[in-house]
Amino acid sequence: MCQHEPRCPSAYASDREAARPVAFRPEQGWSLLCNGVVLFDDTGELLPDGRAVAPHRPAVAPHRSARPLLSPVA
């Protein structure tokens, strides 16, 4: 499917999201990559064989206050 040089990663490669978009619908939240992967804004994917890949955004660390918490006075 890919006509780019160098060729984009295949739909089953670990770096498949690096393929170039050939169609995108930002109002609907998805892009079609040249390797046949549908990439969703939430980082979920639909592979050409119909398998779904769950969203995989990096986990956000909990917010830590710059001030130490005060302990109750006994």
Rank of each mutant, 00 (worst) to 15 (best):
S31Q: 15
G50N: 02
G44Y: 00
P48G: 11
T43R: 14
P26Q: 11
L32N: 07
L39K: 13
G29H: 01
R51Q: 15
G50Y: 07
R51D: 13
F40Y: 15
R25F: 11
L32D: 03
A52S: 13
L39M: 13
L46H: 04
L39A: 15
A52W: 11
W30A: 05
D42G: 07
D42F: 08
G29W: 00
V53G: 01
R51I: 07
G44V: 08
R51S: 15
V38N: 01
G50M: 05
V37Y: 01
C34Q: 04
V38F: 10
L47E: 14
R25H: 12
R51G: 07
W30G: 03
G36W: 06
R25Q: 11
E27V: 01
D41Y: 07
C34S: 05
P26W: 06
L39C: 09
S31F: 00
L33H: 07
T43E: 12
G44L: 02
G29E: 00
D41N: 13
V37L: 04
P26N: 09
S31W: 09
E27Q: 06
D41T: 11
A52M: 12
L47D: 09
Q28N: 13
L33R: 01
T43D: 09
C34P: 10
V53S: 03
T43G: 05
V37C: 06
L39D: 01
A52Y: 09
L33N: 04
G36C: 08
F24H: 12
L46F: 01
D41V: 06
L39W: 03
G29A: 02
G44C: 05
Q28E: 14
S31D: 00
F24L: 10
R51H: 15
G36M: 04
L47I: 13
